[in-house]
């Protein structure tokens, strides 16, 4: 029972401990401005991690964020008012890009379910396809976004927070509700718990798997729009490194790679841990060389500490 509780609250405790340490070591860390900056910095990772979490709940893994986000970032910058095309679709453009992301996600899921290829490989393949699409769209000239509506996502502030932060928060709440209260969310969790049992119950598992991948893709699409708003132009590398970061965040937060355990709330704690770590290490002036090492070690220690009381029960660890 205590072990269960530790698994649930351990990451949160780790987050609070980290924040406390940084708050003591760095006066700047304690400021409201830094809180705003923190949440702002974590917004994109949060949205990507939400997507990754849905796939992790299935027990699958999604490495496609880099490619999908690259393609979507280029697409969104070409669809809204920009320096290269005559299109000016505004919000519709963002919607279209979310749909594009969803289509990529759907492709990963469908390939994995249909061809029975491990998701590890299909998402890797789809990532490469996405990067290719992004490169084709890029065509040598970086499109600069001039749509004030999209640009305002990152610049305008409301009660001190940018719209990107609010957007991420809204997505978090929505994703949590979907996970908790919809058939898609519950079945995704159930698939991670016992896919064969769902099959025996006559549930079309494949459909829900593809659904979860599609949601993930849509999240990447939205995240790409957010990055584009922040950077002011569409770049191919919009999602570089985010796949691993998102999985790390989810796992650190207590969402398990084996599927079925954890969820949005856990993953978001993980996102905050990673964001606080990145922010805090800069603020207390740790050398850039060491930052990476410290992050790696802390991730292992965080997961290790969470699993420590369970070590007798976990007979099999992969």
């Amino acid at each position: 029972m205590t072990a269960d509780r530790l698994q649930t609250y351990g990451p949160t405790a780790a987050l609070l401990a980290l924040a406390a340490v940084f708050a003591v070591l760095s006066p700047q860390f304690r400021t409201l401005g830094n809180l705003q900056n923190l949440l702002d910095a974590g917004a994109v990772l949060a949205v990507v991690t939400i997507g990754a979490t849905y796939v992790l709940l299935l027990g699958c893994i999604d490495l496609s964020a880099a490619g999908v986000m690259g393609a979507c970032a280029l697409a969104v910058s070409l669809l809204v008012a920009n320096s290269r095309t005559a299109l000016d679709l505004g919000p519709l453009g963002v919607l279209l890009v979310v749909a594009l992301g969803a289509a990529f996600g759907c492709l990963s899921g469908a390939l994995s379910v249909g061809l029975k290829v491990p998701s590890f490989m299909t998402t890797l393949g789809v990532s490469a396809i996405g990067l290719g699409v992004a490169t084709v769209l890029f065509a040598g000239v970086q499109p600069a976004v001039s749509d004030p509506w999209l640009l305002q996502w990152a610049s305008g502030r409301w009660l001190g927070f940018t719209r990107v932060t609010y957007l991420a928060a809204a997505v978090v709440v929505l994703a949590w509700l979907v996970q908790r209260h919809t058939r898609l969310g519950r079945y995704a969790t159930a698939i991670g718990g016992g896919e064969d049992i769902l099959r025996l119950s006559g549930i079309q598992v494949g459909r829900y798997k593809v659904g979860a991948f599609t949601v993930a893709g849509a999240c990447y699409g939205l995240a790409a729009a957010m990055v584009t708003a922040q950077l002011g132009s569409g770049i191919v590398q919009a999602g570089a490194g985010l796949s691993f970061a998102a999985i790390t965040a989810a796992v650190v937060g207590g969402t398990q790679l084996a599927g079925g355990r954890g969820g949005i709330a856990h993953s978001m704690v993980g996102v905050l841990i990673l964001t606080v770590l990145a922010n805090g290490l800069v603020l207390i002036g740790v050398s850039p060389y060491v930052q990476r090492a410290v992050q790696g070690v802390i991730v292992v220690v965080a997961v290790g500490a969470t699993l420590w009381p369970l070590r007798h029960r976990l007979e099999v660890v992969k």
Binding site: R186, T189, A190, G192, G193, G194, D196, I197, L198, L200, S201, G202, I203, G260, R261
Partner: peptide
């Protein structure tokens, strides 16, 4: 047994 361990009993009873 064919129950999904991480779901509630109610969900398992009505699964599908």
């Amino acid at each position: 047994q064919s129950l999904v361990p991480n779901l509630t009993a109610a969900e398992n009873i009505l699964l599908g």
